Computed example of a mutant assay.
Amino acid sequence: MNHAYLLIGGNLGKIKENLQNARELIGQKVGAVSKASSLYQTAAWGLEEQPDFINQVLLVDSELPAADMLITMLDIEQVLGRVREMKNGPRLIDIDLLFYNDEVIHLTRPDLTVPHPLLHTRNFTLYPLAEIAPDFVHPVLHKKIRTLLQQSPDALPVKKL
């Protein structure tokens, strides 16, 4: 059994409903959701002139290899109406693979890097991740999630909903 941490989020439409639908489809197509963080609201990161995001981290137990998991996640995004128009732009739903077991993965087809290369610089990822996995050790940086949150360079405030 593989254990993956996923970040789900969005800032368009009925955001909480979209997140619920994503959780359900992840449970059906990726694997059982064994933990879910609270919902967290943050200002947009990167492209700032857009609505706030709501994010959540899930721990998923899955039989899928990482590459198949990514493809399935992209399919779920599409089913839920995701259209990729601009990098860091507004979206109905976004699903990112943060960690896959404690593996370090670099694939070109599909394009996949695990751990997610920027997760340690983004409070919208670190806050929900620290809620459900504070002692998980980043397999590249060799630091606990709680430590990465304390050392985060991100100044954007995060609000637990």
Rank of each mutant, 00 (worst) to 15 (best):
G89Q: 05
G89D: 09
G89H: 09
G89P: 11
P90I: 10
P90N: 12
P90L: 10
P90T: 14
P90Y: 04
P90M: 09
R91I: 12
R91D: 11
L92W: 10
L92F: 14
L92A: 12
L92I: 15
L92S: 13
L92C: 15
I93C: 03
I93H: 01
I93V: 15
D94T: 14
D94N: 13
D94F: 12
D94E: 13
D94P: 09
D94W: 13
I95N: 01
I95Y: 02
I95R: 01
I95H: 06
D96W: 02
L97R: 02
L97K: 01
L98Q: 00
L98E: 01
F99R: 03
F99Q: 02
F99V: 07
F99P: 00
F99G: 02
F99E: 00
F99D: 00
Y100Q: 08
Y100T: 04
Y100C: 03
Y100L: 03
N101D: 12
N101M: 11
D102S: 12
D102R: 13
D102M: 10
D102V: 14
D102F: 11
D102T: 10
E103Y: 10
E103Q: 14
I105A: 13
I105M: 11
I105E: 08
I105W: 11
H106M: 12
H106F: 14
H106K: 14
L107I: 09
L107P: 14
T108C: 12
T108Q: 13
T108E: 15
P110F: 14
D111Q: 15
D111R: 08
D111K: 11
D111A: 14
T113W: 07
V114K: 07
V114A: 02
P115K: 04
P115W: 06
P115G: 10
P115I: 15
P115H: 07
H116R: 03
H116C: 03
P117D: 03
L118P: 04
L118A: 15
L118S: 13
L118M: 15
L119G: 05
L119Y: 03
L119K: 02
H120K: 13
H120T: 12
T121D: 12
T121P: 03
T121A: 14
R122H: 02
R122S: 05
R122D: 04
R122V: 05
R122K: 13
N123V: 06
N123R: 15
F124D: 02
F124M: 06
T125G: 03
T125C: 10
T125Y: 06
L126I: 07
Y127A: 06
Y127K: 06
Y127Q: 06
Y127F: 09
P128V: 05
P128I: 05
L129A: 03
E131K: 05
E131Y: 11
E131V: 08
I132H: 01
A133W: 07
A133Y: 08
A133G: 12
P134K: 08
P134L: 07
P134I: 09
D135P: 07
D135F: 13
D135W: 11
D135S: 13
F136P: 10
V137D: 00
V137F: 00
V137S: 01
H138L: 04
H138K: 04
H138N: 01
H138V: 07
H138A: 01
P139E: 05
P139Q: 08
P139C: 04
V140Q: 07
V140L: 11
V140F: 01
L141G: 05
L141S: 00
L141F: 08
